[in-house]
C-alpha cells in the first residue's frame, strides 16, 4: 500500500493535467457541433468532392457525420489519440522510473517482492486511467446533452466513450512492457509518441486501403468508433483480441521484471 501511494502521488499531477486537457479538447470539439449540424447540407456537398480513401482514413462517414453520434465518432479518433499518448507515457514512465531516476537500488533492496512492486505500479497507473475516464465521460456526456437537443442513443454514446478506457488499457500495457524490455530507457516521451503515432498511422492506412487484416496490428482499430456506430456493439473478435493482448502484455511484464538483472547505474 505504501508503494501504491508513493507511485500514485508521483503520477497524480500529470494525470490531472492530462485529464483536464482531454476534457478541454472534448468541450472544444463538442462546441463546434451546432455549427456543423446547421451547415450539414453544404458540408455534405463539400465532402462528396473528397477522395474516398481520405475520408475513410479520417474516419469520416458522410451520412453519419451530421448526427451527434456520427460527429462524436469522428472527433473521438483524436480524443483516443490523446488518451493513448497519456496511457503510453504513463505506463512507460511508471515502469521505468527506477531506471530513469536511478532509484532501483533503493526500492529493490526493500523487503518486498518484485511482483508486489509491479502490482503497486500497475494499480497506481490504473487509478490514474480511471480518473481520466471519469473526467472524460462526464464532460463528454454533459457536452453532448447540451449541444444536441433532440436526443441520441445513450447506449452507443457510452460504448464509444468507454472505448477510451480500453484503448488506454492497451497502451498502458504496451508502455509497461516497453519499459521493462528496454533496460536503459532514458526518455519516456519520444518512445511513447513514436509508438502511439506509428499505431495511429497504421490504423489510418489500413482504413484508407480498406485492409481489415492490417487493422489487427493496431490497437486503434480494435475499438473503431465508426464500427460501434454502425453495428451498435463492439466488434467481438477485436474485443477478445484486445483482452488477450492486455493480459499477455501484463503477464510478460511481470515475468520480465521479476527475472531481469538490475545493473549498477
Amino acid at each position: 500500500m505504501n508503494m501504491y501511494r508513493h507511485e500514485f502521488k508521483n503520477v497524480l499531477k500529470s494525470t490531472l493535467i492530462w485529464t483536464l486537457s482531454i476534457m478541454a479538447i472534448t468541450i472544444f470539439f463538442f462546441s463546434m457541433y451546432p455549427t456543423f449540424s446547421e451547415e450539414a447540407e453544404s458540408l455534405k456537398r463539400m465532402l462528396e468532392g473528397f477522395p474516398d480513401a481520405l475520408l475513410q482514413a479520417l474516419n469520416f462517414n458522410i451520412t453519419a457525420f451530421t448526427s451527434i453520434l456520427g460527429f462524436y465518432s469522428y472527433i473521438f479518433v483524436y480524443i483516443s489519440l490523446a488518451g493513448a499518448i497519456q496511457a503510453m507515457v504513463l505506463g512507460t514512465g511508471i515502469a521505468s522510473r527506477e531506471i530513469r531516476e536511478k532509484t532501483a537500488d533503493f526500492l529493490l533492496t526493500k523487503p518486498v517482492t518484485r511482483q508486489s512492486i509491479m502490482t503497486s505500479k500497475l494499480l497506481a497507473a490504473f487509478t490514474a486511467i480511471i480518473i481520466t475516464n471519469a473526467g472524460y465521460l462526464s464532460t463528454a456526456y454533459l457536452m453532448a446533452v447540451i449541444v444536441e437537443t433532440e436526443g441520441f442513443s445513450q447506449g452507443i454514446f457510452f460504448m464509444i466513450s468507454l472505448s477510451l478506457f480500453f484503448i488506454q488499457l492497451i497502451f498502458l500495457s504496451v508502455g509497461v512492457i516497453t519499459a521493462v524490455l528496454i533496460s536503459r530507457l532514458k526518455a519516456v516521451l519520444p518512445v511513447s509518441l513514436g509508438t502511439v503515432f506509428a499505431f495511429f498511422v497504421i490504423n489510418m492506412f489500413s482504413k484508407s486501403i480498406g485492409d481489415e487484416k492490417m487493422g489487427y496490428f493496431t490497437p486503434f482499430h480494435y475499438f473503431d468508433s465508426m464500427y460501434i456506430l454502425q453495428h451498435e456493439t463492439y466488434n467481438p473478435s477485436n474485443m477478445i483480441l484486445a483482452f488477450v493482448l492486455v493480459v499477455l502484455l501484463i503477464i510478460s511484464s511481470y515475468v520480465v521484471y521479476t527475472k531481469k538483472d538490475i545493473h549498477t547505474i
Binding site: K102, D105, T109, P111, I265
Partner: peptide
C-alpha cells in the same frame, strides 16, 4: 527468501540516488 532476508539487511551503495 529475498524479501524475508531484506527485512534484516541494510544496504548502502557507492553512489546513492533517491527520488529528487
Amino acid at each position: 527468501d529475498a524479501p524475508e532476508i531484506k527485512k534484516q539487511v541494510g544496504y548502502l551503495p557507492s553512489e546513492v540516488f533517491y527520488y529528487d
